[in-house]
Design a protein around this nucleic acid. Structure first.
Lengths: 193, 193
DNA sequence: CTGATATTAGTACCAAGTGCTAATAACAAC
DNA sequence: GTTGTTATTAGCACTTGGTACTAATATCAG
């Protein structure tokens, strides 16, 4: 018989390629001590695609699943109305890249990012930082939803430089997210340039 | 002048390829209405490798990541240790794009995103959603900082399908962020396949 | 108008294949 | 031994998406 039976070689071949899809037919031929042609016949029988197709498959799979991290922009969502130190409104359209593939529900941090950005924006100061926040994800948000977030400044303490902002996000009038944000600002009232 | 300046075209070319590394020179040539040769000169000047190399890069990056069975694809920051339903650790390197230009301090939502991703990952379930969270930004984080975030599962209620996770982020041993996350999961104990 | 820069064209070549035909090899059955 | 069958190897043309290189042409700026 042969070095190994054809069956045995093909079994190992499948394994080897599954283990490392980056191997060429030539490397496989050397490894199994057969000709490149034999490896190709084997791949055909086993319906294993060529190296480049295998690599492309690996790449596209991971590419589809790759998380598009939060955008770099100052604001997440588009601010459509603002009244400094009082109230603000922004819109954020949820797209496919913002949701879990598994269940199509938006990742919490995108909703948080919209709220947080708006909380920062509504503060009339050069420097505004989120110090503390208490948030609730009330209802799942899905791709295609248009999230409207409203920020209302509800309190301000000059001594501690803190401002409290209430955030509410809705989709079609239904509340999906609420949060209370404690913001720190550098300047007190009247100190502004 | 030209359709667009060379500079502008090259800027868009970089963007296009970064956005979709699977594009061929020919497709790019059509898109930018120039010859394939021009695209190749552009790629050379910009040191952008050819299609196959780009695809191989994408594929090998994810392939080298041994933790491929974990839901690593849904994470912001890199998970370096995980013990499902118990604890997890991730690293996130803060870059220029994560901070306010004004003051160089990291935007809160990036820290939240890392914590939130980790809270979702530590839950051993198909579906885990953040329901509520109470967070504090203890100390400003800056570009160049390496944020190490630790998630510890501190409680679980089977009836309400809730799991409480405590998150702590540190930079050089100093706490910069703490949070308590209430997570919702579909399956109770023992229901897992 | 002259140079410099940008663009296009064309050629040879490469890797890692596919698709095809044809020649051997190996082994079993008669 | 001869025949049949399956397995293996060889060789050639062709494909994709390039590289490397040379040469011609276009475009613009001073």
């Amino acid at each position: 018989m042969l070095r190994r039976t054809k069956k045995e070689r093909q079994r190992l071949l499948s394994e080897t390629i599954a283990d490392n899809p980056f191997v060429t037919d030539e490397q496989l031929a050397t490894q199994f001590q057969v000709s490149v042609q034999t490896i190709r016949l084997d791949r055909m029988e086993l319906a294993i695609p060529e190296l480049r197709e295998r690599i492309k498959d690996v790449a596209s799979k991971t590419y589809e699943n790759e998380v598009k991290s939060l955008p770099i922009d100052e604001i997440i969502g588009e601010i459509i109305d603002i009244e400094l130190d009082n109230r603000a409104l922004s819109i954020f359209d949820v797209k496919e890249e913002h949701v879990f593939q598994r269940n199509g529900i938006a990742r919490g941090h995108h909703l948080f990012a919209q709220a947080n950005s708006l909380a920062v924006a509504v503060i009339d100061d050069e420097l505004a930082l989120t110090v503390h926040s208490n948030i609730s994800f009330v209802k799942p948000v899905r791709a295609g939803d248009r999230v409207i977030t409203k920020a209302i400044v509800i309190g301000r303490d000059e001594k501690s430089h803190r401002t409290k902002v209430e955030l509410t996000s809705t989709v079609n009038g239904e509340t999906v997210f609420v949060g209370e944000f404690d913001m720190y600002r550098t300047k007190g009232k009247g100190e502004q340039q």
